[in-house]
């Protein structure tokens, strides 16, 4: 879920960069030195997971997992996502440097939203069914939020992008559904395998 180079207007690119920098700053503040190896490991895991293709009907798609990152990383999702996107930009030459800020916001803002809205419920969830529900909501919110930010970036760029924004939202509805199911499965797996990951306030911060 990212926007390519060369599409957005300068104010959108610049604004995205500034807001993302602020988010990364908050995220880094919430980390202490001891947390760095763990957060880095999570970043690497999410990067690796984003390379996995899962079939969705006739096509296959990559996982985004920003909702899950929100649940597990809290505010450090910001630096973590920034790094994952930088690595993607460098290694695979995806959406590159100028859109890095906007693309970070697209994934990280919903992640932090998930952290604020859903983490308390996850900590209170006592049954597998509830964990599944919270997980599904995290997946849905992560992608829906991302779609909203993409649409916003297009719309702020200008009228010429309205059609593209619509196309983006429509083509990402399958992603939304798959991520919902997938995040629910992930969270319930982690809840059973390593409950401390889920129960602590947020694992890293």
């Amino acid at each position: 879920m990212h926007i390519s180079e060369g599409i957005l207007s300068t104010p959108v690119l610049a604004g995205g960069g500034v807001i993302a920098a602020a988010g990364v700053y908050v995220g880094l503040r919430s980390l202490n030195d001891e947390d760095i190896p763990k957060t880095a490991m999570m970043t690497a895991v999410f990067f690796t997971a984003s390379l996995v293709q899962v079939p969705a009907g006739p096509v296959s798609m990559h996982l985004v997992l920003n909702g899950l990152m929100g649940l597990l990383l809290g505010w450090s999702a910001f630096p973590s996502i920034l790094i994952a996107l930088t690595l993607q930009a460098v290694i695979f030459r995806y959406g590159g440097l100028t859109v890095l800020g906007v693309n970070t916001l697209i994934m990280a803002c919903p992640a932090v939203l998930v952290h604020i809205l859903l983490s308390p419920f996850l900590r209170m969830a006592q049954s597998r069914a509830r964990v599944l529900v919270v997980g599904a909501c995290a997946g849905l919110l992560g992608i829906a939020g991302g779609m909203a930010f993409v649409a916003l970036a297009f719309v702020l760029t200008g009228r010429s992008m309205y059609g593209v924004a619509g196309l983006f939202v429509v083509t990402h509805i399958p992603v939304l559904l798959v991520e919902g199911v997938f995040t629910a499965a992930m969270v319930s797996f982690l809840w059973r395998m390593k409950p401390e990951l889920i129960e602590s306030r947020s694992y890293v911060t």
């Binding site: 190896p37 490991m41 690497a44 293709q53």
Partner: peptide
């Protein structure tokens, strides 16, 4: 891999396994 729950569950467990083991390793 197919488009079904078995696939999604399997993939989520594979990734979850990587995550859990990696965190232990990072410790």
């Amino acid at each position: 891999p197919r488009t079904d729950l078995h696939t999604y569950r399997t993939v989520s467990r594979l990734i979850g396994t990587i995550m859990v083991r990696s965190l232990d390793r990072s410790e």
